[in-house]
Amino acid sequence: MSDYKQQVSRRQFLNYTLTGVGGFMAAGMLASPLRMAIDPVLQPSRSGDLANVGLAEEDITTEPQRVEWKVEQVDGWYESEVTKSAWVFKNDKGEIVALSPVCKHLGCMVSWEGSEKYPNEFFCPCHDGRYYKDGTNVPGTPPPEPLDVFEQKVENGMLFLGKAHPRKGA
């Protein structure tokens, strides 16, 4: 930079200006479409509204029972009612546990004591996946991790469930 009086030639000047203007035009053309394309990623995660599943707390036993409830699902411009289900019971400490019935192997539906061969376990009929009562997968069977657990609360003696979340460990 010793030559402090560096001249910008006419050609350079035009090159820079035209590249700059062209860049602005390209950016202007692409900005909105790109923002539109990535919109789903930037949506705030939906508030986990808990829904009344129609089961009183006092009716929950230590024996897992299957509950089904309906939630409003909004899929863009398409609104529908979808049925969700869970296996609900009280564990040894008296806490309510609500497990997702979706097998962590390939997404079939597990059921409590679904096989006569494996009492006291959740059983998936698709590939003989098994889970202990607390939802932990039985080692050596196909599922790679424990069943998801629903967000839950008890209000006015009724059970409310939200979204199912995976839990750590296996």
Partner: peptide, 17 residues
């Protein structure tokens, strides 16, 4: 996770979008 949402158009639903 982002890739999946970007493809599916929704975080959870495989649907209209």
């Amino acid at each position: 996770d982002y890739l999946k949402t970007l493809l599916a158009g929704d975080v959870e639903i495989v649907g209209a979008q």
